[in-house]
Amino acid sequence: MPLSPLTCVIVDDNEINRLTLEHLVDLTPDLQLAASLAGGIEALNYFRQGGQADILFLDIEMPLLSGLDLPRLLPTPAPAIIMVTTHRDFAVDAFALHALDYLVKPVVLDRFNQAVARVREQRQPPLPQVSSPPPAVPAPEPDTNLFVKVGTRMLRVDFSEVLYIEALSTYSVLVTKAQKHIVYLTLKALQERLPFAHFVRVHRSYIVNTALIDAVQDNTLKLGTHEVPVGKSYQEEFFRGLRGL
């Protein structure tokens, strides 16, 4: 069964960037362009006058009305917002506005299609329930303890208490609220052996326990009294998944 097309609006004050996105829309069979606009004011007027779209591809840095200000003024129901910008540093602000995705210029077709697929997945109607499912059996609590080599002994470490792991030459440092353990494994080797999905690489020198992140400020993670930077090459993927933490 063919997919019903999604409509979209492009908003960018740079004509070359608009033409690039228009070309990507043309290359996407299930996507139709409803409007291509040169600024936030034009976009606000379009939607306030009854214009509609499933997706809004929105540049962030625009004069008069920026892409960070426009979503707060849109009438409901608002389209799914996909931010498009040259700067990764806006990722936190974008997801604070509940943007569904965040594309970094120059946008390539594969990454563009991933963002469109996320919108379609969000709008997918739930399958009808034929019969009541059997009562769910509670899954057993996962064991968060692992033995790691610390010095000359094998030490049992509860990884639910590990805030983050830091690279130290050919070793790694496990940091908890109370203490640190030097482990005789590189960060890469340790990452490959960790069975816990909530430990995520956010920097060439850091893996963090996302379950223990207290706050995010700019591109820095707060874990108790500790701070961990998010590397530039890791920012887009990390902040895209931030809403699911």
Rank of each mutant, 00 (worst) to 15 (best):
L74V: 03
A43H: 06
V157Q: 09
P133H: 13
R118Q: 15
L74I: 06
F95N: 00
E141P: 04
L73K: 05
D110A: 15
Y46I: 10
N145L: 11
A91I: 00
A80Y: 00
A80H: 00
M83Q: 02
H98C: 04
P63R: 08
A80E: 01
G51C: 07
S132Q: 14
V119T: 04
P125L: 12
V137Q: 07
V162I: 06
A43Y: 07
F112D: 06
R48I: 08
P75Y: 04
E166D: 10
R72F: 06
Y46E: 12
P106E: 10
Q124H: 13
F147M: 12
Q49I: 10
L64M: 14
S131C: 13
H87T: 00
L44W: 12
N45K: 13
L146E: 12
G51N: 05
T86W: 00
V148E: 12
E121S: 14
L44A: 11
V84C: 01
D110T: 14
E61N: 06
V104H: 01
E42H: 10
Q52N: 09
S66N: 09
L58E: 04
Y46T: 10
D143Q: 10
F90E: 01
T152D: 14
E166K: 04
V107T: 07
E61W: 03
Q129L: 15
L65Y: 08
A80K: 00
A43F: 06
L127N: 14
L73S: 07
A43C: 11
S131P: 08
P135F: 08
D54F: 01
F147K: 12
P125D: 13
V84P: 00
A99D: 00
P106M: 06
D69M: 07
Y164S: 02
Q52W: 06
A117S: 15
Y102N: 03
I41D: 12
P135I: 13
V107M: 08
L100Q: 03
N113T: 14
S160W: 05
L65E: 11
D101W: 04
P142A: 05
G67C: 03
S132K: 14
L97M: 06
R153T: 14
R118W: 12
T85E: 01
L58I: 04
L97Y: 01
D101C: 07
P71L: 03
V107D: 09
T76L: 08
A53G: 04
V162K: 01
A96D: 07
R72Q: 09
V84L: 02
P128R: 14
L127Q: 15
L155R: 14
R48Q: 13
V84N: 00
L70W: 03
I82D: 02
A139G: 10
P134I: 09
D54H: 02
F47T: 06
D143T: 11
D101N: 08
Q114L: 15
M154I: 08
F90S: 03
D54M: 03
F90P: 00
G51A: 07
